[in-house]
């Protein structure tokens, strides 16, 4: 048994356990409050409010809406957030009677997106309007996917482009082409290195955690709202811990027990 293990328990990872426990405790607390009828306030996020206008514009112009759920696998947290947002977005599109094209790089994401969009069209009372062929797998290769999605933008001329999820080097190629076609573009990613490209080419960009807030904001789903509230108060705790840590680490340097408690081995 390792020195840091007590009865098979990794004491060196106690800090991780505590963070997870506090976070899930907060989620459970807010969920319990939601179920008892508590209403939570979430500040307005301009990029999310713009989604409604962008969808209205596409409907008025009679042109499709393009949704790209990132380029990562389904288990990536940003892809999960993106697919969660796709649900309410597809539901609104179904109500307005516009067309939705989803361009996917990962086959499994396409399958999940098809299920989500199909469900959304049913929720909107228009299951017959769902077009399975509009949820497309382009290619597993990053730049082939970018080339294929650019082709969709140039030929089918979507009036609105959504880039929600994790993106890498293809982000600028996609958003720049969308800009040339004159589409309203809204992007959301927590991939810090790609945010600058979206900021310069898109009409609205949701920064980092706003991507995760968007799914809760749009769906008003109690579980997601509770998670968002829990994340908010975890941030407050994190700010407090960082400030305490800065003071103690400045005083005791490497001998600081508070700082060392966070070391994960």
């Amino acid at each position: 048994m390792d020195a840091s293990e007590t009865f098979g328990f990794h004491t060196d990872r106690l800090s991780v356990l505590l963070f997870i426990a506090v976070f899930f405790g907060l989620v459970a607390w807010f969920l319990w409050r939601t179920r008892r009828g508590a209403q939570f306030y979430i500040r307005r996020i301009p990029g999310i409010d713009a989604i409604e206008d962008a969808l209205g514009r596409a409907t008025e112009m009679g042109r499709p809406v393009l949704y790209v759920p990132g380029v990562e696998e389904m288990y990536d947290i940003q892809t999960i957030a993106s697919v969660l947002i796709l649900g309410p977005v597809a539901e609104r599109i179904a109500r307005y009677g516009a067309d939705l094209i989803v361009s996917c790089m990962i086959p499994f994401v396409m399958t999940v997106s098809q299920e989500v969009v199909k469900q959304s069209y049913s929720n909107a009372g228009r299951p017959e309007a769902f077009k399975q062929d509009n949820i497309r797998y382009i290619s597993y290769e990053q730049f082939a996917f970018a080339a294929g999605t650019n082709g969709i933008m140039m030929r089918e001329r979507p009036a609105t482009n959504f880039f929600f999820g994790r993106f890498y080097a293809e982000s600028l190629m996609l958003a720049e082409t969308g800009l040339q076609t004159g589409a309203v573009q809204i992007a959301a990613t927590a991939e810090i290195s790609q945010l600058p490209f979206f900021i310069v080419t898109c009409d609205f960009t949701l920064l980092g955690e706003e991507l995760f807030a968007a799914s809760a904001y749009l769906s008003k789903e109690p579980k997601l709202l509770s998670t968002l509230k829990a994340a908010d108060w975890t941030k407050v705790a994190v700010i407090g811990l960082i400030l305490i840590g800065v003071v103690t680490h400045t005083i005791w340097a490497d001998a600081d027990p508070f700082f060392n408690w966070f070391t994960v081995k």
């Binding site: 990872r13 800090s15 991780v16 963070f19 997870i20 976070f23 947290i77 994190v238 811990l241 960082i242 840590g245 800065v246 103690t248 680490h249 400045t250 340097a253 508070f258 700082f259 966070f262 070391t263 994960v264």
Partner: peptide
């Protein structure tokens, strides 16, 4: 576990700088 460790705990610790 990986996310809580790498994206939270280790980040928090790295932010506790010695001024």
């Amino acid at each position: 576990i990986g996310a809580a460790s790498a994206d939270l705990v280790i980040q928090v610790q790295s932010s506790m700088v010695n001024l």
